[in-house]
């Protein structure tokens, strides 16, 4: 190489080096900000869900602790009258029945809002109770199996419970299934949950992208903040299977 060529060669090497460093820096920055972004989103979702749960617990408690006793008082009061007229008695009986019904519905609603069992006896007991209730009120056959007690901290347990609620609710509402099974297994440092229905199935990716409802998105968010993973397998006429792996 001549002297000019050598100089050009050196200049090109130097220039490439500098451009290379700039590009590398650019990629590092992009990857880093991607991480920051995910962290921020996670934080937002966490705050949102924490607020939501707090609010639900409060409303549930208000229902349970304030309205229920009030209604019971009303019931006692109207039974206090000394009625003789048969018509009046029948009327009162009706009122009694209505109040009974309202109290029952309110218990259900407050249970849905924040099941006491979940906080008191843990996830498995709460789900057991939930499934028992579902079996009573729906035609669908629910089965629930779980290996002994799994240890999840409270906030995670609430999230898992909400996930289950939404998955089961979706299956009831959309799948036209006749059987829904829920299975929980305790692994070494995670729990595996499998929920199957034998309904009509759906295109999960498409529905999630379409954002037809907020349910699927909320399931995703909650799985994310527990640090777990989820798999969905859904085929037309074969039903839907969800698998969750939640780290303990």
């Amino acid at each position: 190489m001549g002297t000019t060529e050598t100089t050009i060669y050196h200049a090109v090497i130097f220039a490439s080096l500098v451009i290379g460093i700039l590009l590398t820096y650019f990629f590092i920055v992009v990857i880093h900000s991607q991480k920051v972004n995910v962290g921020l989103r996670k934080k937002n979702v966490l705050e949102e869900i924490a607020g939501l749960e707090k609010e639900r617990a409060r409303i549930g408690a208000d229902f349970h602790d304030e309205l229920s006793p009030l209604l019971s008082t009303v019931k006692t009061r109207i039974n206090f009258f000394q009625l003789t007229n048969a018509e009046d008695l029948a009327e009162r009986q009706q009122a009694n029945d209505h109040i009974e019904e309202v109290i029952k519905r309110m218990r259900q609603i407050s249970f849905n809002l924040m099941p006491n069992t979940l906080l008191r006896d843990g996830l498995i007991k709460a789900l057991e109770e939930y499934v028992e209730f579902l079996n009573r009120v729906h035609r669908i056959r629910f089965t629930f199996t779980a290996t002994e007690e799994c240890m999840l901290e409270e906030s995670k347990a609430v999230n898992v419970y909400r996930i289950m609620q939404e998955v089961i609710h979706n299956a009831i509402k959309h799948s036209k299934a006749s059987e829904i099974s829920i299975e929980i297994r305790d692994k070494k440092n995670a729990i595996d949950i499998r929920v199957c229905d034998n309904g009509c199935g759906f295109n999960y990716k498409k529905k999630l992208a379409e954002k037809t409802g907020i349910g699927l998105g909320s399931i995703n968010n909650r799985v994310m903040i527990t640090g777990g993973k989820m798999f969905v397998d859904s085929r037309p006429q074969k039903g839907t299977t969800y698998i969750f792996k939640i780290p303990t």
Binding site: T7, I8, A11, F14, A15, V18
Partner: peptide, 15 residues
């Protein structure tokens, strides 16, 4: 400044 950087590098080498 990226372009300027390149030009300056060439100048620096007396090109």
């Amino acid at each position: 400044f990226t372009f300027k950087l390149l030009v300056e590098i060439f100048w620096f080498y007396g090109l």
